[in-house]
Design a protein around this nucleic acid. Structure first.
Lengths: 229, 229
DNA sequence: AATCGCCACAAACGTATGTTTGAAACATAC
DNA sequence: GTATGTTTCAAACATACGTTTGTGGCGATT
């Protein structure tokens, strides 16, 4: 075959376009015309637009889950206790293994992850949770002993805070870097952003509330009454 | 007038629906029928769907910007040096002032903020930057002396990391809390999430890289070659 | 050589969208 | 009470969308 498979060309084009504009904002006609294939090809090969979206995530996440699993195996075999930053680097290493060193692919991947949360009325989130939940749980299992001073609930929220910081900034890395450059003249590539993210996430995950404010009232930060409809 | 203005009813309905499903996924017919007004009312009162979206953000952010400005005035008048957590609480207080203590409104507001970043091909972000950039800059001006050990560039990225953590988790607070509850049986309302966010963001913002890895190479975290297209 | 399964293609289908239109209803002022 | 400006309404418009259809080509199998 002289050029790429039709299926692959659709996936490549759709991946880039979805990451750039979102799912609903990207039409099958745009996808197929940039891919250079016939309009009907998407429905023929994937069945529907929804299935195409899922296929893109599978192509991204299946190899990533494998890479993370491999890293986790090795880490557990070494049996050294890993610090939080070690685990974050393990994750970063896995992403690099899969996506190579392409800033475009990493940014795109993060944007898609972010979209999976915000858009796609939950059907995608449920699917991803089913398919990759076990790997995620295993990772958290290693994270657990790395911060013994935290409760499970502390750890849950801090982990998602950190995830949010990563997804949000990496998916908007280009725009943010451009903003910073216009202010300071300093250019920041995605590699540097990741290097900054790791200490941020590390100290953030370690953090916990004052016991006083955790009670909800007293001199703690804020306390809300129940929702008044 | 026995019931709310048509304009206001449209804004209320659109605000809730957009936050729930996104902009492109919400049709004017859905908005007008839940608002109980005629389909043409949106185009009559706002001109277009795009203008409606902007109007919603203005209604949200204008009072918030006023509240933050007021708080900033008072903080600068007091002339006491504010710690990072003080500034985050200042922000939180402003949000509460504007939106009252409604979890639904706060979640919705955060979802809209998140959407403004991911969707809306940048035209919305540009508009918001123009209109509220000065308030944001003023806030960062107070944040600056609160972390003297950070460079301007450190501060820029850490601020956006923290913003990402807040937007991402607060906009998905319901789903995340439900996930946690099904695992542990513990319920978490948005108030508690905010109380957890503040220490997370505080210690995250304070963080900075090892000088060694900041150079880009050496024993620092990662280093990427340039993008290979 | 004929047949079969797979794929690409142009065209069409049905539906949902944002927007516009023109008339009716309403409120306000003279 | 008539006139004027504003708002509501049902209907239609034009377009864009995801999907389906039928045809034809191409290679592999028999």
């Amino acid at each position: 075959m002289a050029q790429k498979d039709t299926v692959e060309r659709i996936l490549d084009a759709a991946e880039a376009l979805f990451a750039e504009r979102g799912f609903a904002e990207t039409s099958l006609r745009t996808i197929t015309s940039t891919a250079g294939v016939n309009l009907a090809a998407v429905n023929y090969h994937f069945g529907s637009k929804k299935a195409l979206i899922q296929a893109i995530f599978v192509r991204y996440l299946d190899p990533l889950a494998d890479a993370v699993t491999e890293e986790l195996n090795q880490a557990e075999a070494d049996d050294k206790s890993l610090a939080i930053s070690d685990l974050l680097m393990l994750l970063t290493r896995s992403v690099y293994k899969v996506h190579g060193h392409s800033a475009r692919r990493i940014t795109g991947f993060m944007r898609l992850l972010g979209l999976a949360y915000t858009q796609s009325q939950g059907h995608l989130r449920g699917y991803l949770g089913e398919r990759y939940g076990s790997v995620f749980k295993r990772f958290v299992g290693l994270l657990r002993p790395a911060c013994p001073e935290l409760s499970d609930i502390d750890l849950f929220w801090n982990t998602h805070f950190a995830l949010g910081a990563a997804v949000f900034t990496l998916s908007n890395q280009q725009a943010l870097a451009a903003m910073l450059e216009s202010d300071t003249g300093v250019n920041t590539d995605i590699n540097q952003v990741v290097n900054r993210l790791i200490p941020f996430m590390t100290s953030g995950i370690k953090s916990h509330q004052d016991p006083a404010s955790a009670q909800g009232a007293a001199q703690g930060y804020f306390n809300l009454p129940n929702e008044s409809h």
